[in-house]
Structures are given as C-alpha cells and as structure tokens.
Design a protein around this nucleic acid. Structure first.
Length: 136
DNA sequence: GCCAACGTTGGC
DNA sequence: GCCAACGTTGGC
C-alpha cells in the first residue's frame, strides 16, 4: 500500500479543518502542478497520507486516508487537473517538524527535503516508519 | 523581506 | 525548439 504526503497552508485549510470534516472527508483540489497531479492520479482507495502544514508550522500533523480516487478537479475550468477525497484517520501523537526530518539522515532523500515546492509526493515505507517513530 | 528552485510564457 | 523573463512556492 503506497504512502503519500499532502501539503497545505494551515491558514487556508488546516488539520483542525480536516478533523472537523469527519467522515465526510475533504476534497483535495487546487493542485496545479503536473508532477503533483500525477501522484494524485496514482492514489488508490485506502492509501494513507501524511498531512503537512507549510508556512509557520512546517510540521506533519496527522494521517489521512484516500476515500475517493482521482476525479476532475471541480475548481479547474480547463478539466486538466484532478482532485481526490481524503478523510482524517488520526492525529500524530506529536507533530513531526521539518527540522526533525532534516536532522534525520535516513530521511535525506525524502522529497519533502529534496523538492520543497512539490505539494503531493510519495513516501517510501521506510520513510513512513521513520516519521511515525519520530511522532511517538 | 529575501532568495533558491522551478514552472510557464512568449519572442525569436 | 531554445531561452530569457517573469511569477509562484515555501523555507530561511
């Protein structure tokens, strides 16, 4: 089962907002980058993703799961980009900061570090485990 | 507030 | 098809 990481500006849509959506989940739209869109298309039902706050927080807050696979992004008039639907699974016991991730040598290859502008990215199983360990 | 990285646009 | 100019993202 593949793992992912989704970025969001907490001022726009935060982990608290995602939690408040409950089992309705949230439509993850507005992605306008082809590489990120490619990842959205690869997501399967039940895949899990880390929920990352950019900006002041710069930390992973929780875990979400894909409840609807890629469909045309309702906010995209051109019809070229896609969205998915995600639902909160649980908060991390402790948020994992970008500084922690950068300090972890085994996470040096993580796309969060390597390609800071990418907003939707895959996470390897070992990276996933490492991050959850940091959150414990 | 600055800047590096990167995507997009438009002239040639 | 190349590349300079410009806009955006996101960390510092």
């Amino acid at each position: 089962m593949p793992y992912w990481l989704l970025k969001t500006e907490p001022e726009t849509f935060s982990w608290q907002d995602q939690l408040a959506r409950g089992t309705n989940g949230e439509c993850w739209d507005g992605v306008r980058n082809h590489q990120a869109a490619k990842h959205l298309r690869q997501m399967q039902l039940g895949d899990q993703a880390l929920f990352y706050h950019t900006g002041k927080d710069k930390s992973i807050q929780g875990i979400v799961t894909v409840i609807k696979t890629a469909f045309p992004d309702p906010s995209d008039a051109t019809g070229r980009f896609v969205a998915v639907q995600v639902q909160a699974v649980k908060p991390l016991p402790r948020p994992v900061t970008l500084a922690q991730i950068k300090a972890e040598t085994t996470l040096a290859d993580c796309l969060l570090v390597r390609q800071s502008r990418l907003s939707v990215m895959p996470i390897t199983t070992s990276q996933w485990r490492t991050i959850l360990r940091l959150a414990a």
